[in-house]
């Protein structure tokens, strides 16, 4: 079943086009990583997919519906969130639930506790959000976002500012929720080597979709070199292609 569908999506600000004619589709429960240099429009594309801004041209469908109408099963977590740092983590997660009745019930609390303990942040429920480390903040937001019972999660740079263990934790959780819960995950990424975690990788440059396919198809040295404009070294680990910048030490 198709969960995400983008048809000829373009976005312009004052006649300058930031996103050019992007078309792709995803099946339910698949993970898509979007790669590309800074400023190529990854965040803009994610905001369009989440229905925060409408595309200037083209259409987006989430399970066949307009994003504006599919909010009850969508979770979006931005990279630079502007969250009230004085608010308790529990209240942040409750605010993320949003849908449902006029008041929160026992059931909502249970869901939040369940996901919070799943992510190991249950002891921070009473802690102000601003007192948590960036990694813990991301985990709190993910827990609240999952308590919504989403069918689609759109995450902008979920690995940014995290140490390697938290990055691994979040990426394996993304895989796990996709496989166990059938949640479709679309996320933006800077670490090329983590592209292997996803089912599909999309490479973007200057607002254009350069390539879309399986990690092994898309992570091609010549293509990456042309997009990032630096020399890269390629390795192969357990059949996965890994690229790192080439440094000269003298």
């Amino acid at each position: 079943m198709k969960s995400v569908e983008a048809i000829g999506v373009s976005y312009s600000v004052r006649s300058r086009e930031i996103i050019h004619n992007i078309t792709f589709e995803l099946e339910e429960g698949k993970v898509l990583a979007i790669l590309g240099p800074n400023g190529v429009g990854k965040t803009t594309l994610l905001r369009i997919l989440s229905g925060i801004i409408p595309p200037s041209r083209g259409k987006v469908y989430l399970y066949g519906e307009n994003p504006a109408k599919s909010r009850r099963f969508l979770t979006y977590i931005p990279a630079n969130y502007n969250i009230d740092m004085y608010a308790r983590s529990l209240d942040i997660m409750l605010a993320e639930l949003y849908n449902g009745g006029f008041f929160y019930g026992r059931h909502d609390m249970e869901k939040i506790r369940m996901w919070a303990s799943y992510f190991g942040v249950e002891r921070y429920l009473d802690t102000p959000f601003g007192k948590l480390s960036s990694g813990e903040q991301k985990l709190v937001l993910l827990a609240g976002g999952l308590a919504r019972n989403p069918k689609i999660m759109i995450l902008d740079e979920p690995t940014a500012f995290l140490d390697i263990s938290n990055q691994a934790k979040i990426l394996s959780l993304i895989r796990e929720i996709a496989e166990k819960e059938g949640i479709t995950v679309v996320f933006a990424l800077h670490e090329i080597y983590y592209g292997n975690v996803a089912d599909h990788v999309m490479l973007m440059k200057d607002g254009k979709l350069m390539k879309f396919g399986s990690p092994n198809e898309v992570l091609d040295k010549d293509l990456l070199v042309s997009i990032y404009g630096i020399e890269l070294e390629g390795f192969e680990i357990n059949g996965n292609k890994v690229f790192l910048p080439k440094f000269s030490k003298d």
Binding site: R47, S50, G51, I52, A68, R71, R72, L74, T75, Y76, I77, P78, Y81, N82, I83, D84, A87, D91, I92, L94, A95, E96, Y98, N99, F102, I154
Partner: peptide
């Protein structure tokens, strides 16, 4: 109360919730 409460998440997250 609920829409006002959701503003604590910032504009983008609140909008993605349908506020």
């Amino acid at each position: 109360w609920k829409p006002i409460n959701s503003l604590m998440l910032g504009e983008d997250m609140a909008t993605s919730l349908g506020v």
